[in-house]
Amino acid sequence: SPEEIKAKALDLLNKKLHRANKFGQDQADIDSLQRQINRVEKFGVDLNSKLAEELGLV
Rank of each mutant, 00 (worst) to 15 (best):
L47H: 05
I5N: 07
S1H: 09
A7W: 10
K16S: 04
L10H: 01
Q25Y: 15
G44I: 01
Q34H: 11
R39S: 13
R19I: 11
I37H: 01
K8M: 13
K22E: 10
H18Y: 14
K22C: 13
D11I: 10
G24N: 09
Q34N: 08
L57M: 07
N38V: 12
I37R: 03
S1G: 10
G24M: 08
S49M: 03
V58Q: 10
Q25F: 15
A7H: 08
G44V: 01
L33P: 00
S32K: 14
L12C: 08
E54C: 09
L13Y: 00
I5P: 02
A9W: 04
K50V: 10
E54K: 04
G44Q: 01
F43H: 09
A20S: 04
D46M: 06
Q25E: 08
R19V: 08
L57H: 03
R39Y: 15
L57R: 03
D26T: 12
D31S: 07
L13D: 00
K50P: 14
V58C: 10
G24D: 05
N38A: 15
L13Q: 00
V40W: 04
S32W: 14
F43T: 03
L47K: 05
L47C: 07
P2N: 12
K42M: 12
N48K: 09
S1P: 06
S32F: 13
L51C: 04
S1N: 11
F23N: 12
H18P: 00
F23H: 09
S1I: 07
K42I: 10
F43S: 04
P2V: 10
Q27W: 08
I37C: 02
K42V: 08
K16F: 05
F23Y: 13
G24E: 05
I37A: 02
V58L: 11
N21I: 15
L13V: 00
Q36C: 14
V58D: 07
K6H: 03
A28E: 10
K50S: 12
F23R: 08
G56N: 06
R39W: 15
D31G: 05
L12E: 04
E3Y: 08
G56Y: 04
K8C: 11
E4A: 12
F23W: 13
N21H: 15
F23S: 09
L51Y: 05
V40R: 00
E3C: 10
A9L: 06
R35G: 06
K50H: 09
K6T: 06
L13F: 00
K16Y: 07
E54D: 06
Q34L: 15
K6I: 08
K8Y: 08
Q27H: 07
N38R: 14
N38W: 13
R39P: 00
D11N: 09
P2M: 14
L33G: 01
V45L: 12
Q27I: 07
